[in-house]
Design a protein around this nucleic acid. Sequence first.
DNA 1: ATTTTTCTTAAGGTTTATTTAAGTTTTGCT
DNA 2: AGCAAAACTTAAATAAACCTTAAGAAAAAT
Lengths: 219, 219
Amino acid sequence: MHLLLVEDDKLVAEGLCRSLRQQGYSVEHCASIKSAMQWLENDEIELLVLDLGLPDGDGIDVLKHVKKHRPNLPVVILTARGSIDDKVQGLDLGADDYLAKPFDPAELFARLRVASRRVTHAQSSTINVANVEMDTSAFTVTLDQEPVNLPRKEFMLLKALFENQGRVLSKQQLESKLYEWGEEVGSNTIEVHIHHLRKKLPKDLIKTLRGIGYVVGKR
Amino acid sequence: MHLLLVEDDKLVAEGLCRSLRQQGYSVEHCASIKSAMQWLENDEIELLVLDLGLPDGDGIDVLKHVKKHRPNLPVVILTARGSIDDKVQGLDLGADDYLAKPFDPAELFARLRVASRRVTHAQSSTINVANVEMDTSAFTVTLDQEPVNLPRKEFMLLKALFENQGRVLSKQQLESKLYEWGEEVGSNTIEVHIHHLRKKLPKDLIKTLRGIGYVVGKR
DNA sequence: ATTTTTCTTAAGGTTTATTTAAGTTTTGCT
DNA sequence: AGCAAAACTTAAATAAACCTTAAGAAAAAT
């Protein structure tokens, strides 16, 4: 899941970037309205975390712009201002959520999961396919109730497939979910990860559609 | 918009009911888990505002029940408990939002507007011809609901025909859909693919117009 | 700083899809 | 009917996609 973090405080930004990545997001970061606008040209940004206290203008303008051009993009706003009027304004402009600083990262993550659920149409944080259950917020997978240990990339890959149960995802699509912008994958990484997943899970869980991609479930 | 408010504090409930109605909602109110469950049998409830501090049990159970039986019903949770763990749990169970008491009604209204905005309409990219259904985005084809496995070129070929249902496509036109510019096809490829398709699908689905081309449907 | 785990790369092997080509059947025409 | 053109069928050859393995690089944990 591609996320854009707009936050000018270097320290905060750095910490958030790291922990967001640990949560499985591909994080792009910028610190000004200007560059935020540029990033948002990129259609693959799927989630926006926006600090309102920016140096070169009011973050609300970014929000307006987003809602005009990408009305379905989920937005979570961070702000030092705590007044309710601000909250109401942000929400009515189309923000999906609003967090006043200081906040606990765990709460931000939970709210991001809510926001991204909308994009992926998943309802809760667990997804079952056959006898495999994935908890996307706890980062765990079980096979017949037995825990299965999956490294991060394998987990993300499986998650992408689970969230699109019954839909075929091409290798390209999968790559774009696992890697950030500019990162090039010059090889058969996906194939290798799939192979590792198949060794740990029922062999027919992930089906290959030659020339098209991979699917899970519903067939 | 039909809204169910589950709140046991009479004073709070009364005030909320009134102002929610002023906001244009038709409000049903109840004060226990038991009656909440009953109300939720009613499919006309479109929005749920749930207080977690109920007399006869844990409101989280209501949330679980709702998400199981009405996974698309938007839920906003009210609570006195302020701990982050509660929030995270509530959100991960599928609540769309979470407000800690005391809160400003204006903020609740704003969050309700966000929650009810969510009328997502998944557009299916399927084309039906006779008893064959094709989902062009999932790359799947079913015959009488039974999946049919089609390799890429066969799929593309069938897709071209389906997208031009009732229109005759010449072999040349079909070739140009399957191949890149400059790619030469020195043979009867199309004929062979058509042949393979006919073996997997109803034999009369693809009709041949001698000297002209192939058609599907509407005739 | 060291060890362990995870990730990427690349080469070779396997399977499956696609093309080719040759033989066969169908069709439309005179 | 007899002929030629077009389409169908089949099987083998080629090509593409994918799988497997293993080793080295990178990242994380100790």
